[in-house]
Design a protein around this nucleic acid. Structure first.
Length: 252
DNA sequence: TCATTAAGCGTTG
DNA sequence: CAACGCTTAATGA
């Protein structure tokens, strides 16, 4: 049995209280690992160790999976739901750095450093998170070239994401910002299997793109009028991902 | 003066 | 009950 993090609210939800979408049959931890692109490049021995060492935890909406300031001793995967990375700082306001849809691995930067975690990880809705212990992660990194290549690609993609973010925010206005943040949730390397309907409230989209609720709403209407997305109650449906990317000037 | 935002509130899904 | 839309008051360019 693995030692599990002690930091999270211990609230479990009775299955009958869950919404249908949340109760939907979801991937087991095992199949989640198997469907992750980096997993196929491991030897049988490595795969076995990863499967033995990795564990998962469920989180209700709003729960914190990792606290800022805790030691970063796990590499994380979003199995189901959606989480965000932010600074839930004691001083002042929370800033969201990234949304992490299901199917994505993240936190590799924190595991590679020895410093405590700089950011918090919060579930945006009912979610399950996979924890790969630091030792296992470093072990793979040291012995398997295809895995280290994957990690390099991951870090590189993240770096490119933030360059694009600065570019976009310096040059463009609200609607383009929102378009950028939404489109990047479908980044091939970072977020390989995002659902076309994002379960994000307008307020969350606002936090993600650094805009007020009003501005976010206005921007979303603009994008909806252009036929790139459809606004739903508590969700955004992406209709034209390429259009969004162009509008956000991704790749310029 | 005009634009933007946080806060509050009534409505809606 | 949370998300949404609208109004309002404060803030600042």
């Amino acid at each position: 049995m693995q030692m599990q993090p002690t930091h999270h609210r211990q609230r479990s939800i009775a299955p009958e209280l869950l919404q249908p979408a949340q109760r939907r049959r979801s991937a087991s931890l095992e199949s989640f690992l198997e469907s992750s692109s980096w997993f196929a490049g491991l030897t049988a021995e490595e795969q076995a160790r990863v499967q033995a060492d990795t564990y998962e935890r469920p989180y209700p909406a709003g729960a914190m999976a990792c606290h800022r300031g805790d030691p970063a001793d796990h590499w994380l995967g979003a199995i189901e739901g959606m989480v965000k990375v932010d600074t839930a700082s004691a001083c002042g306001r929370a800033i969201t750095f990234a949304g992490v849809p299901a199917g994505s691995w993240f936190g590799e930067g924190a595991v590679l450093k020895t410093e405590p975690r700089q950011y918090s990880v919060v579930a945006l809705k009912e979610s399950r998170v996979a924890f790969v212990p630091r030792d296992t992660f470093l072990w793979l990194l040291a012995r398997n070239p295809s895995f280290s290549r994957y990690v390099i690609d991951q870090l590189n993609a993240r770096c490119g994401y933030y360059v694009g973010l600065v570019h976009n925010f310096r040059l463009h206005e609200a609607a383009a910002r929102v378009a950028f943040c939404l489109a990047e949730l479908f980044h091939r390397q970072l977020y390989p299997s995002t659902d076309r309907t994002l379960g994000l409230s307008q307020e969350e989209v606002g936090r993600l793109s650094g805009l007020s609720r009003q501005n976010t709403n206005r921007a979303l209407r603009e994008l909806a009028d252009a036929g790139m997305l459809a606004m739903e109650y508590g969700a955004i449906q992406i209709l034209d991902l390429e259009g969004l990317r162009q509008f956000a000037h991704i790749g310029d």
